[in-house]
Design a protein around this nucleic acid. Structure first.
Lengths: 125, 125
DNA sequence: TGGTTTATACGATTGTATTCGTAAGCAATC
DNA sequence: GATTGCTTACGAATACAATCGTATAAACCA
């Protein structure tokens, strides 16, 4: 069973950066965080230390500057939040979410093709 | 400009109940909340009072038992969370979210048809 | 009417997230 | 080898969310 994974707002933001970069130092993360939030370096540092304690990330302490890696797969978080969102915001109706997403967020033609073929394979079951 | 809408975890849970029922008393909400969480009546009451102060809900105080109504449209919340989720969990790629949603959440054949026709109309633009 | 139930109001407590200041170590540089 | 800059560690303050106990009033009813 997957342990309950429940990062805070700020932790999720940091995780999302780590998922994109695979691995990063506090400074690298902080530089990105700073673009949207006005917080001090030690705040980001502290958060990442706490995340380490919680097991949300691991870190390589070989060099003076630690290197952080997320422990949770992005896919697991995706699935968890998707499920929750469908439940609380879409009354459990996944297709409503899909329609909404397609309607208000741009999607390339080839991506649309990919979605169509996925639908076809689902319908042929 | 839409005011920043940022309910807490518990507030969102209550809103989701109100969205489904359109309108409800504290007791009605609490009865549903209790199915998943073991909290006292006054906790739910207090939360809804705070939500009223924040403007997340309005209430009709004509009778002794107040009747609550959500002020925020469910659609606005849907859009906001969807956007945020696509950004932090799907690297900004909406179609990834759609594929994931279709892959892991059941969708009826007629709903799938509806999605297909939506895609077709998007592609014919 | 008097007691019981059901409501709201509200203060207080507890728990957790967020933020930052300060200290201390290390490494490059002057 | 002293100074400067960057790093981590850590305690402490602040803010906010969540929970509940108690008081008070209205409505119900036997």
């Amino acid at each position: 069973m997957t342990k309950t994974f429940k990062p805070t707002e700020s932790e999720l933001e940091i995780l999302s950066i780590l998922w994109d970069k695979q691995t990063a130092t506090v400074r690298e993360v902080h530089e990105i965080v700073q673009k949207t939030k006005d917080v001090g370096y030690t705040t980001t540092l502290k958060l990442m230390q706490i995340m380490n304690e919680k097991g949300l990330v691991t870190r390589n302490v070989m060099s003076k500057t630690h290197i952080y890696t997320p422990t949770i797969q992005r896919e697991i978080a995706q699935e968890q939040y998707l499920t929750k969102m469908i439940h609380t915001l879409f009354s459990g109706n996944a297709s409503q979410l899909v329609l909404q997403a397609l309607g208000t967020h741009h999607t390339s033609k080839s991506d649309l093709d990919q979605i169509k073929s996925m639908i076809n394979s689902l319908q042929n079951k």
